[in-house]
Design a protein around this nucleic acid. Structure first.
Length: 560
RNA sequence: UGGGAGAUCGUUCAACGGUAGGACAGCAGACUCUGACUCUGCUUAUCGGGGUUCGAAUCCCUGUCUCCCAGCCA
């Protein structure tokens, strides 16, 4: 891992330690593996990467980086019936976007098929593997149950010669799919199912995305994974908790093959509230068109977050701070949003946009005058500079920013009250116009010409500063507001009933002209509203995350 | 009921026989040309029961609960 794109400062900033890091430190101190640290991120190319993978990516690449080691990107492509190059491409793009680099170390388990085959023959010759003629259903029956040991396959004690011959003919394509397997001869009575003569190779005629039709037999995960790790000289093979039971087999293979033995270490996979991180469910959301695609901004995929406006820095900081343990936990989505806002606050350009426009007429402002008010682009970053925003007699403000009958603690615009229009003027509400339904459709104000830019020369204070756009100059745009993918408390096994139909809300909004032709992925803070990001569709802005809204809380509390 | 693993504030991570701490969330203030940001203060936890020890979240025993495993998926 030689990535310079992840700054050392970020790396060193009080990153908490965890048990895997402690193991690595101890191994280095003990001179294990010659003090080398070599990890790998091993995705199966059968889906898009999601935030759970990001945790693993940050862990593996991060550890390598911290201890001067290396981290490989390796595709675990041993099941051609599910894997596609589309997924390979997206995974490469997403890991890069997250800020990591693998130099020339991009591998595929399929790179090792020849070696794996040779080692399988070695195990057959050692009497530790045999060809089994049982079909899938029979294998299951013979496997036994948690309480009862399994039964040995009737083909278990074939001669080495017969096994060699049969295995060679399996590879040559003489037998139909599923008719035979190569099995490891271990222990049908083991309390650990993985040791009850696990299948090493199955016959499977499917075009492989890399090896094409060269093979009709494919190695199983347990056999291929550890051996791939070994070939690459991996020192710490980090995986998730569900593989704990597999460690025994992992160790069995490297030991019986007499090859370099990486250490498998398991950690807890990431779970986030209000979403799903299961490939199967994410695939279903895409296939059944609940979302527009893998990069739908509601998806917890890396590309979904990217399109939504998340930054790699925010995701990395999140991953560095959630910790690594063996507890099956559920992290609050709000924590991710916290690190997101923290990052966006530093980098997003401030801009004014009105999502629910209410017309405001400044009665004493000259009809044809247009003033270009100076506005700061980012108060958190002086180098972001400033821009100018057109001000005129007819404006739009947010409907929520006016109340004809203001509740207690409401200090935005209402009849008789003076507020500041940000970077504009202090204005006082003098009256309203209503429609037949009695709704306020227009607010009338007067302005104080002495307060140009928003400052009162007499030093008088107003309680509220509000955003606005000039009606004649504002651009029309579409704003997409996102809510959680799923309804609170629903079982996501039933997508149809759990899916939140209001997870996407489209709105026609008014926005200041400075954002014209914003490049996709440009990040903004719509002041007082939230962080938004220009979508790949022109004229569309995705709400990345709302700003914290204390008033909404107060109001909710007082009305309920 | 077989095997593997795990239980600490609402959530999450730490404390590695010596004052249970941080982050997020929550609450109360301060500040503010964003009710944002920032700052200050506060509330809240060792799964139960026994033991060992001057001293236990930590060690021992015992119980309880949760997660994973019977794919020719990874």
């Amino acid at each position: 891992m030689s990535s310079e794109s992840v700054s050392n400062a970020e790396n060193e900033s009080a990153r908490p330690s965890h048990f895997i890091r402690d193991i690595v430190i101890q191994d280095i101190q003990n001179g294990k593996n010659g003090g080398r640290v070599h990890t790998r991120f091993p995705p199966e190319p059968n889906g898009y990467l999601h935030i759970g993978h990001a945790k693993s990516i940050c862990l593996n690449f991060g550890l390598a980086q911290e201890f001067g080691g290396k981290c490989n990107l390796r595709f675990d492509d041993t099941n051609p019936s599910k894997e596609e190059t589309e997924y390979v491409d997206s995974i490469i793009e997403d890991v890069r976007w997250l800020g990591f680099d693998w130099d020339d170390r991009m591998f595929y388990a399929s790179d090792y098929f020849d070696q794996l085959y040779a080692w399988a023959i070695q195990l057959i010759k050692a009497g530790k593997a045999y060809v089994c003629d049982l079909n899938a259903e029979q294998v299951r029956e013979y496997r036994g149950t948690p309480q009862e040991p399994g039964k040995e396959s009737p083909y278990r004690n074939r001669s080495v010669e017969e096994n060699l011959d049969l295995f060679e003919r399996m590879r040559a394509g003489e037998f139909p799919d599923g008719s035979r397997t190569l099995r490891t001869k271990i222990d049908m009575a083991s309390p650990n199912f993985n040791m009850r003569d696990p299948v090493m190779y199955r016959i499977l005629r499917a075009e492989h995305h890399r090896t094409g039709n060269k093979w009709c037999i494919y190695p199983m995960y347990d056999y291929a994974h550890g051996e791939s790790d070994s070939i690459e000289g991996i020192t710490h093979s980090i995986c998730t908790l569900e593989f704990e039971d597999h460690r025994l087999l992992y160790d069995w293979y490297v030991e019986n093959l007499g090859i370099h033995a990486p250490q498998q270490i398991e950690f807890d996979r990431l779970n986030l509230t209000n979403t799903v991180l299961s490939k199967r469910k994410l695939l279903a959301l895409v296939r059944e068109k609940y979302v527009s695609g893998w990069d739908d901004p509601r998806m917890p995929t890396i590309c979904g977050f990217r399109r939504r406006g998340y930054t790699p820095e925010a995701i990395r900081t999140f991953c560095a701070n959630i910790g690594v343990s063996k507890t099956n936990g559920l992290i609050e989505f709000g924590l991710l949003e916290h690190y997101l806002r923290e990052d966006l606050n530093k980098r997003a350009l401030r801009v004014m946009a009105v999502l629910n426009p209410l017309k405001v007429v400044i009665d004493n402002y000259p009809d044809d005058l247009v003033e270009h008010m100076n506005a700061v682009n980012n108060p958190e970053d002086e180098s972001a500079g400033s821009r100018t925003v057109p001000f005129s007699k007819v404006l739009y403000i947010e409907k929520d920013d006016f109340r004809e009958d203001p509740p207690k603690q409401y200090f935005r615009l209402s009849p008789g009250r003076e507020v500041r229009l940000r970077y504009g003027y202090l204005v006082t509400c003098t009256g309203v116009v209503k429609n037949d339904a009695g709704e306020v459709v227009e607010v009338h104000c007067t302005y104080d010409p002495a307060t140009r830019g928003g400052n009162a020369p007499d030093g008088r204070k107003v309680k509220s500063t509000m955003h606005w756009v000039s009606a004649a100059h504002a651009l029309d745009c579409e704003v997409r507001l996102y809510d959680t993918l799923f309804l609170e408390g629903k079982d996501t096994d039933d997508l149809a009933s759990a899916f939140n139909p209001n997870s996407l809300q489209k709105k026609a909004a008014k926005i200041e002209p400075s954002v014209k032709d914003a490049a996709p992925l440009t990040k903004y803070q719509f002041e007082r509203v939230g962080y938004f990001c220009a979508d790949k569709e022109p004229g569309v802005f995705n709400r990345t995350v709302a700003l914290r809204d204390t008033w909404a809380k107060v109001e909710k509390k007082t009305t309920s």
